[in-house]
């Protein structure tokens, strides 16, 4: 479904991502792990068009999407969340989800001013999508509240809700469990699995190994922007390179 080929990104002298290649297959829940600063978020930024790669290509459904603008890539069906939970804090939960479905509608400013039937149709479609999504992420009863009043975990849900309201085929989640208590992780993981069961392929960056082990069917390990391991979660966890990357070489000695 997604193929990353020899992708590199240099910031000045720093190689944030270095000749990285990997594939995401349809239906996967693929986890990308690695120490801090190993280039994981940069990979997401490269795939979704927020950074332009120094070298390499990104293929999505066989099509070269390298260097396209973020909004074009989103319309092609790749959604993402951000590491620091990003939602429209000043808007209501429902407002957040309505605007997230805007990309699947067409009417412009004249349609809005004259309130054409097409525009009313679009608004209805967005509202229905927003209500369905609010229900799906378990925030239906809070849909009229300002997003700023939600708890940290609810904001995480909403961020994921915004992403899925765009109707993606591929969803990139950047640390979906960051800043969430252990008790709240279960329901969040269940939500991610539920999205996957609806046919959305998922790729996530995660630090919490417990989450990675239980949720993903494949794992990629990055260190200094390079891929140092790939495979089934249980195999990767045993890999010598991975243990060294996380704990330093002293661990073995």
């Amino acid at each position: 479904m997604l193929e990353v080929k020899n992708l590199s990104k240099h910031f000045g002298g720093l190689r944030a991502v270095d000749e990285l290649s990997f594939k995401v297959e349809k239906g996967d829940i693929l986890s990308i792990i690695g120490p801090n600063g190993s280039g994981k978020s940069t990979v997401f930024n490269l795939i979704t068009g927020f950074h332009e790669p120094t070298e390499g290509r990104v293929l999505y459904l066989g099509e070269d999407i390298t260097g396209l603008k973020p909004h074009v890539i989103a319309r092609k069906g790749i959604a993402r969340t951000f590491q620091h939970t990003t939602i429209y804090l000043q808007n209501t939960v429902q407002g957040n989800l309505i605007i997230a479905h805007r990309l699947r509608t067409n009417t412009g400013i004249l349609g809005a001013i004259f309130r054409t039937s097409r525009h009313r149709q679009d608004e209805k479609q967005c509202l229905e999508k927003a209500e369905a999504t609010a229900d799906f992420i378990g925030l239906y009863s809070k849909r009229l509240l300002p997003a700023s009043l939600l708890s940290q975990e609810e904001q995480k849900r909403l961020a994921i809700g915004i992403a899925i309201a765009t109707e993606p085929q591929l969803l990139l989640l950047d640390e979906p469990m960051g800043g969430v208590t252990d008790k709240e992780m279960g329901p969040l993981m269940a939500l991610i699995k539920k999205i996957n069961e609806q046919g959305v392929t998922i790729c996530l960056i995660e630090h919490k190994m417990g989450v990675v082990m239980s949720i993903s069917n494949r794992v990629i390990v990055l260190n200094y922007g390079r891929k140092i391991a790939e495979g089934l979660p249980e195999n990767v966890a045993k890999s010598k390179d991975v243990i060294e990357a996380y704990l330093g070489e002293d661990y073995h000695a």
């Binding site: 603008k69 909004h71 989103a74 319309r75 951000f82 997230a100 805007r102 915004i162 765009t166």
Partner: peptide
């Protein structure tokens, strides 16, 4: 950033 990530041409 969020707005372009949800497919709106900012």
């Amino acid at each position: 950033d969020l707005t372009s990530s949800i497919g709106i041409d900012t």
